[in-house]
Write a protein that binds this DNA or RNA. Structure first.
Length: 596
RNA sequence: GGGGUCGUAGUUCAGCCCGGUUAGAACGCCGGCCUGUCACGUCGGAAGUCGUGGGUUCAAAUCCCAUCGGCCCCGCCA
């Protein structure tokens, strides 16, 4: 009898409401619900079932005197059974109201009930507490049943809905581009897909639709966007998966400010749709040089100060031998002023000094400003007037601590940036729920890669050089700025883009700088260079990381918490077992021999 | 490729340092009783290759080595 019912593919009646939506205003209504048994309290007579669906939980009461048949069914119910219930919404007596539940003022008095499907005992409780992550991933469909994951994925959906609504309102056209595409050099490792029809040849999954969206500008769509899946075969991190999603945007003829305006308009729409929050616009804007000098990184967390100070000037002619030698080598001295209300123990200072020495081979000097002058291991090497000069330059007050490192500027600044983050973490300054958005622009175009002994693009090889720096492209390429920009939120890069090159000759010159011969450039990017020859308009754009944004919206540190079916750090899907072996027949068809 | 950390009933964890009864607890599960619970209560019960393999030892969850897996980090990720 029970089994026969369970076999029916159709539920016995239509659902009228979601469990979690019922309120006191529904009192007196006859409702029909479907849901999972989240809790069962059997009093021998009365049975209480907490019924859960995507909107939440409602209590159902089974009374053997009023609905004997339904009560008999409720006796069979167990956790995570999927059941259908019909009954009346009734207001609970004052003594039995549950303030913990959104539906706690009412309950459903069951008149009919049916078990639609039984459940074996779940491998972990479907509740607020997360189990060990490997079991969650193995039974992901159950993990996603948990309210927290339901909330996260629906919030991600709202974010995308907000992005689409905004971009549509601004005249952007959503266009899908191929997943099977061609391998291109530079950048991350490609995921390859063998071609059966063309033995020995491979497609690559796109690392981003970069070139395709540029070609769409050549086509004249003028404003394009796509919620684009991207693939990069690199090692995973807490915020990195091999496949991820970007909101990819490209437009014809923008200046940097135009792209920023669209980007922040879209982000504002995302926050409005996902959280009901109105973001103040425009976002803060800074140039890369300034950001790097003040924060030692290109993605600063602006929720706190503790900016890096350049102290080379006030230390000129110092009696402190180590600093003096550094300065004589053309190196610089940087410091961070830690105000007196942030107290570091001597032991913490020693640990910081030691870890800096071990990790970077750099010495940390520190002094504390007291009424009688400086205190600390190096205080005795610094003359009073010199100390006063530094104190003034750094804005030191009594009780403040000054942490200093001397060395090559490009090496010391990132170290100071790390130190700044460490201090921010140590004093709880990064726990603030403030949202500090920041546009960083004018990155360098190129950097020197010592390993490959050549210049590589900081962004990608299609980024346009800053017009003011064009003349230095040959004489001093490393000093050339790019028309590029990133959007940073609380120390995380959530988007980035650039104005592109749309001129064939300029693009060829950049390829040349990067060490491509003309033939190589033609072979790899001939279709792009060819397209530029057909009246390609100036264009530029940006791409935003959907998971990064969703992580911020959901207040989580793990990308897996905002993806339905993520992979482990070894890029394995614990649920399906991907990647898996394939049959010899499949390999033969693809002309592939596995050597390991 | 490298460093760190975790792995014990279905789940969450204790036990591991300092080797020595039958490896415990809570929740869950199974059965009985219970008409206002919502961490229901109550009585009883089942449940463990201590990740895997090897070594040391009279004796290993415990010490050593290797290995597998989850997580975090460095490299890598234009």
């Amino acid at each position: 009898m029970q089994k026969a019912e369970g076999l029916s593919p159709l539920p016995p009646w239509r659902r009228t409401d979601y469990c979690g939506n019922l309120r006191a205003g529904d009192a007196g209504r006859e409702v029909a619900l479907w849901g999972w048994v989240a809790s069962r309290r059997d009093h021998g007579g009365l049975i209480f079932i907490d019924l859960r669906d995507r909107e939440g939980i409602v209590q159902v009461v089974f009374n053997p005197e009023r609905a004997a048949a339904a009560h008999q069914i409720a006796r069979q119910m167990r956790l995570e059974y999927y059941v259908a219930v019909k009954g009346a919404v009734i207001v609970r007596s004052e003594a039995t109201v549950n303030k913990e539940l959104a539906t706690g003022e009412i309950e459903v008095a069951a008149q009919e009930a049916q078990i639609l499907n039984e459940s074996v005992s779940p491998p972990f409780p479907i509740g607020d507490e997360a189990a060990a992550e490997d079991i969650r991933l193995r039974f992901r469909y159950l993990d996603l049943r948990r309210p927290e994951m339901q909330r996260n994925l629906r919030r991600r959906h709202r974010a995308l809905a907000g992005a689409r609504a905004y971009l549509d309102s601004q005249g952007f056209v959503e266009i899908e581009t191929p997943i099977l595409w061609r391998a291109t050099p530079e950048g991350a490792r490609d995921y390859l897909v063998p071609s059966r029809i063309n033995p020995g040849k491979f497609y690559a999954l796109p690392q981003s639709p970069q070139l395709l969206k540029q070609l769409l500008m050549v086509s004249g769509f003028d404003r394009y966007y796509q919620v684009a899946r991207c693939f990069r075969d690199e090692d995973l991190r807490a915020n990195r998966q091999p496949e991820f999603t970007q909101i990819d945007i490209e437009m014809t003829g923008p200046r940097t400010e135009d792209v920023m305006a669209v980007g922040e308009g879209m982000i504002a729409s995302i926050y409005r749709h996902a959280l009901g929050v109105e973001l103040p616009l425009p976002f803060t804007r800074m140039k890369y040089d300034d950001v790097f000098a003040r924060y030692g990184t290109d993605k600063p967390d602006l929720r706190f100060g503790l900016e890096i100070l350049e102290l080379s000037q006030p230390f000129a002619g110092t009696g402190f031998r180590i600093f003096a030698e550094s300065l004589s080598r053309g190196e610089t001295i940087h410091g961070i002023r830690l105000p007196a209300n942030f107290a570091l123990s001597r032991r913490e200072l020693d640990e910081m000094t030691e870890s800096l020495r071990l990790r970077n081979g750099l010495g940390l000097a520190w002094v504390r400003a007291s009424a009688g002058g400086w205190q600390g291991p190096i205080a005795k090497f610094v003359a009073a007037d010199e100390g006063a000069r530094v104190a003034e330059a750094a804005g030191i007050c009594e009780g403040d601590l000054l942490l200093m490192v001397a060395g090559e500027r490009s090496r010391v600044l990132p170290v100071m940036g790390d130190l700044r983050l460490q201090l921010g973490t140590r004093f709880g300054l990064r726990e603030s729920d403030a949202r500090c958005f920041l546009w960083v622009s004018d990155f360098p175009l190129l950097e020197y890669n010592a390993e490959e002994r050549r210049m590589v693009p900081v962004n990608h090889p299609f980024t346009a050089p800053h017009p003011e720096d064009l003349e230095r492209l040959n004489s001093d390429p490393l000093s050339v700025r790019a028309l590029s920009y990133d959007l940073v939120l609380n120390g995380e890069e959530i988007g980035g883009g650039s104005i592109r090159i749309h001129n064939r000759e300029l693009q060829l010159r950049i390829f040349e700088l990067l060490g491509f011969t003309r033939e190589q450039a033609e072979e790899k990017f001939g279709f792009l260079l060819e397209a530029f020859g057909y009246g390609a308009p100036p264009h530029g754009g940006i791409a935003f990381g959907v998971e990064r944004i969703s992580m911020m919206l959901c207040n989580t540190d793990s990308i897996r918490d905002v993806m339905a079916f993520p992979k482990t750090q070894k890029a394995v899907d614990l649920m399906s077992g991907a990647p898996s072996d394939v049959s010899q027949v499949q390999l033969d068809e693809l002309s592939i021999r596995v050597t390991k």
